[in-house]
Design a protein around this nucleic acid. Structure first.
Lengths: 341, 341
DNA sequence: TTGTAGGCGTTATCAA
DNA sequence: TTGATAACGCCTACAA
């Protein structure tokens, strides 16, 4: 049906290897023959079959981005940034959603065999993986925006993220310094061992250092039936909290999207932000910036994280050596949703 | 390095074709042999190499979703829904972003050759394609959420979308019936020939039928340097409009995200929604629902559109016959951002 | 600088 | 119900 390398070779009156050399920019080829070949390629609209290439090549020049918790827009901006760099390197990539219940390492291992991946980016999720399991991944990979309990693993892997505990601490400390003593926490799932847990630790640490006790009833997990980190989730959880008649003057949601949903619930209860309740989120998304009121947040330097993650990956692919990860500082962005009391 | 079908065959003491039959669920195989093979497959953690499969198979059982204007969250929900159906059919899929400047039909044609696609979903974009060009696509494809000027093409293709002109008309007519006479329009790019243009036609028609003249100065295109349909874009354009001191009492933004950005600009100007200005969006996203105030919108039935698009695609793949498209009705959802004057 | 041929891991055809 | 074997389209020694 559509043209193959043989057709092009025949048409040009050369061998297939010459065509191959032309399209793959090999040095040992006559410039004139190369031009002829390339012209015919264009003329016939020939596109090499990637499957055949991948079959032949050891590595397929494709990298996979595994995203856990797809609903957070944070990841999309990151993917977009990574995409650029991947294209610059003339690699392909594909996105793979990973369910909350699926194990991304298992998926990665399958994918490597299936597609001869050159590398993998893990985006989000990946809590509490044993080093042993991670070591089964036979291609270079980087961990991006992933909170890990085990500092050991984090040190050995190429992990690019914030110190979630520290940043959680920073923003809660900010609220406390503003005079808030009753701060609700809108977290991840109950059994979360990743960023949700770490940010919660930051929350607790801030309370402890400021000599404030916190109320366990004010610490809320997300609703497992709803997409994680989503507005819906924040809304639902805040509705429940409000129904409980618990007193609080501030809320720390572990994502901007949850903060937005929670804010809506607060408005519907007839309360005002920040007059009655101060709201802070996490991530630094545009969604929070354009909200009314705009949401104070702990912004992740997603551009740096994306860029450094992906270039570390390429470094690993090309040098075969492992590259050290990095911890980035977050930035507290004070907006309209918080006030001193 | 990792196990191949030969390794499994050797291990089981059978031929490769038997292994192939086992893993592909072919009928003509002894159940015991099949079990043995499948067990060994599991034991060795064998995963068939997809490239080899695709090379051999006429079609690769993968379908591509080409998304134009990635920044609209509308598409992500749709992709998620389609994903389910694709997995049900045991097909693979991948997402491909298409730049605003790229031609999605060209990309599609390359992809078909490169990956032996079984089918394609076009999501967004694809304005004003000639039938001739579209006919170069040799595999089944559906057009989803795509506004097309040329009704002819729309009729021959499997297109699943709203009647954008009609829905644009509906929501503007709603505003007019509420007493608004000065309605700003926040559209797509200046040269848009797709949904942006169609919704604008609806806007004009509503004015005409209600015997109201409209002010060309109130019709605004998006900022080409910013992502289309985005909050940023709505914000920027509304800032400009406000700086112009033009009078208007309502705004129709062609996406909820633009409506949100525009709303923010309005708040920053010290105005209130809906007291000073009424705001309507388009799409029916959660983002508008959770906004403060929630945004009145013309909701697309994205679940139906997604489901019907993808099942039409599978019908075409399996029956080789073309399937007729469908026009869906939108739903006007009145929320907090509009009022009568 | 070029062409020939073998093989990458599958699936499908054919004969057993 | 099985197994050998020929493709699928490409890349890459190796030979010329």
């Amino acid at each position: 049906m559509s043209a193959t390398i043989k057709d092009i070779a025949r048409e040009c009156g050369v061998g297939v290897s010459t065509v191959s050399r032309a399209i793959n920019n090999h040095p040992d080829i006559n410039q004139d023959t190369k031009k002829l070949v390339l012209d015919t390629v264009k003329k016939y609209n020939y596109v090499p079959n990637n499957s055949a290439r991948n079959l032949k090549r050891i590595a397929s020049k494709t990298i996979a981005i595994l995203v856990k918790g797809i609903s957070n827009p944070l990841f999309f901006s990151m993917v977009e940034m990574m995409e650029k760099e991947i294209k610059n390197n003339k690699y392909n990539y594909f996105l793979q959603h990973v369910d909350d219940r699926q194990d991304e390492v298992d998926i990665a291992i399958s994918l490597i065999k299936e597609k001869r991946l050159s590398g993998i980016v893990f985006l989000g999720g990946l809590y509490d993986r044993s080093e042993e399991k991670l070591s089964k991944i036979t291609v270079p990979f980087v961990l991006s925006t992933i909170g890990m309990m085990d500092a050991n693993i984090k040190a050995t892997c190429s992990s690019f993220s914030l110190d979630d505990k520290l940043e959680g601490y920073k923003i809660v400390d900010y609220l406390i310094k503003k005079g808030h003593k009753k701060i609700a926490f809108l977290g991840a799932s109950a059994d979360d061992e990743s960023v949700g847990k770490l940010r919660l630790e930051g929350y607790k640490k801030a309370h402890k250092e400021n000599n404030i006790s916190f109320d366990e009833d004010l610490i809320r997990c997300m609703d497992e039936t709803l997409p994680s980190y989503s507005m819906k989730n924040g809304y639902k959880v805040m509705k429940d909290l409000l129904a409980n008649k618990k007193q609080f003057t501030a809320v720390f949601a572990i994502s901007d999207m949850q903060a937005i949903g929670a804010s809506k619930a607060i408005f519907e209860a007839g309360l005002k932000i920040p007059e009655d309740i101060s709201m802070v989120g996490f991530d630094g998304l545009d969604n929070g910036l354009f909200y009314n009121p705009s949401i104070t947040t702990l912004a992740q330097p997603i551009e740096e994280i994306s860029t450094e993650s992906i270039s570390a990956l390429f470094k690993m692919i090309k040098s075969k050596k492992s590259v050290k990860g990095k911890v980035f500082p977050g930035t507290l962005i004070e907006r309209e949703s918080t006030r001193a009391i």
